[in-house]
């Protein structure tokens, strides 16, 4: 969810772009981290762990912890908490270590 009214901050309305998550079209703001766009769309599961396939989400949001690795435009292990969103990106929930093509 996006914040609309905030007592201290203002978030001016910005142009939305579209990208896909596992084939499904989602909207986000160009330049914001992919993870922010996904959270705004209520998507919290970003990958499944290598060993026990446990769901993983955002944890540090500053590129420190590697909890948020996803496959973006076929490139695996992208830290989506710091990767800026661009129109048309193809984002996929990553399974394990991801497939390198």
């Amino acid at each position: 969810m996006r914040i609309v009214n905030h007592p201290i901050l203002t978030f001016p309305k910005q142009d939305m772009v579209t990208f896909t998550l596992n084939g499904q079209t989602i909207e986000g703001i160009a330049g914001e981290p992919i993870a922010a766009a996904l959270h705004a769309a209520d998507v919290k599961v970003l990958r499944h762990s290598h060993g026990r396939h446990r769901p993983r989400g955002l944890f540090c949001a500053i590129g420190n912890c590697s909890s948020c690795l996803m496959t973006v435009d076929k490139i695996p292990n992208v830290r989506v908490c710091i990767e800026p969103l661009r129109a048309g990106m193809v984002v996929e929930t990553q399974e394990g270590k991801g497939k390198i093509v």
Partner: peptide, 20 residues
């Protein structure tokens, strides 16, 4: 490790920097 568990800094970054 469940999604939905965050560090305090992550929560701040999401809501105060990105408005989410």
């Amino acid at each position: 490790d469940l999604p939905g568990i965050y560090g305090a800094g992550a929560v701040q970054t999401l809501m105060n920097v990105h408005g989410v």
